[in-house]
Amino acid sequence: MAVQVEIWTDINCPFCYLGKRRFEEALEAFPHRDQVSVVHKSFELDPTLPRDHSDAVVPHIAEKYGISEAQAAANERGIGAQAEAMGLTYRIEGRDFGNSFDMHRLLHFALEQGRQEQLLDALYAANFAEDAPLFGDHDRLARVAVSAGFDEQAVRAVLADPEAYADAVRADEAEAAQLGARGVPFFVLDRKYGVSGAQPAEVFAQALQQAWSDHAPGLEIVADGDACGPDGCALPERN
């Protein structure tokens, strides 16, 4: 018996970075964590961007939400404070954003090898914790994958073929639409329970317990009569 958790994310998304850590906190404390399987699914925040696109985050946020760059920078500082409280490094200045399709293709490549988690963590660290730009640079992307323990030649072969794992990415995105996901992170447990956003660890813990309880329901007593227990036997009353 196992609980399956599917998590739709995008490397551009800071709340996916935070949400992953909060979910991991809940999972670590979950008594049946060894019977929970986790798979990460693809979701592009902006699939219309050119494949080689890279631009600064703060001006992009300001333009997208119709706010000033000062307000966008303040939002970044707020997210950075949340990350710091969880022990995560979050670079609030100088980050870039861009098309993440090739990253998602590599994550499917990593899933095939049973090492998806390692690559996702390396991509999050490269985007949110390190100084060098990440998007629109296959050399940088290959170095990140190699640092996570993947074979460079195999990684570059995936990146060189734009259709490698492309159908898997598109299938994930189609599933997200069918499930009603309008943003990420989006967590689905056993295709029955959904959790949207970087919720507190307590919310993830509750969702895990609910999914687990469905696998092991309590016994429904359909008839109750005379029986013996630790305290003795219930004797029938004499007339």
Score class of each variant (00 low, 15 high):
Ala148Gln: 04
Asp226Ala: 15
Val144Ala: 12
Thr9Arg: 11
Ala142Met: 01
Glu117Met: 07
Arg91Leu: 15
Ala164Tyr: 04
Gln209Pro: 06
Ala110Leu: 05
Gly229Pro: 00
Val39Tyr: 14
Val195Ala: 14
Asn239Lys: 10
Pro200Glu: 14
Ala223Glu: 09
His215Phe: 13
Cys228Met: 14
Ala171Val: 10
Leu123Cys: 14
Val58Asn: 10
Ile221Gly: 06
Asp172Met: 14
Tyr124Thr: 11
Gln206Trp: 13
Ala223Asn: 10
Ala85Leu: 08
Gly66Met: 02
Arg95Val: 05
Ala216Val: 08
Ala223Val: 04
Asn75Glu: 13
Glu63Ala: 15
Gly66Ser: 05
Asp131Lys: 08
Gly232Ser: 04
Leu120Ile: 07
Asn127Phe: 09
Gly183Lys: 00
Glu152Tyr: 04
Asp10Gly: 13
Asp226Leu: 15
Arg51Gly: 05
Glu173Trp: 05
His32Ile: 04
Val5Thr: 00
Gln71Pro: 05
Phe23Val: 02
Pro59Arg: 01
Phe135His: 01
Ile79Gln: 07
Ile11Asn: 09
Arg22Tyr: 10
Ile221Val: 11
Ala166Ser: 05
Asn99Cys: 13
Ser37Trp: 00
Phe23Tyr: 11
Glu163Leu: 15
Phe187Trp: 13
Arg77Glu: 12
Leu123Ser: 12
Leu208Lys: 00
Cys233Gly: 14
Ala74Ser: 13
Asn75Ser: 14
Thr9Cys: 11
Leu18Glu: 12
Glu152Lys: 09
Gly180Lys: 03
Asp151Ser: 11
Ala62Glu: 01
Pro59Met: 05
Gly80Phe: 01
His40Ser: 12
Ala70Thr: 03
Glu175Met: 07
Glu84Trp: 05
Val188Ile: 09
Gln210Phe: 14
Val158Phe: 04
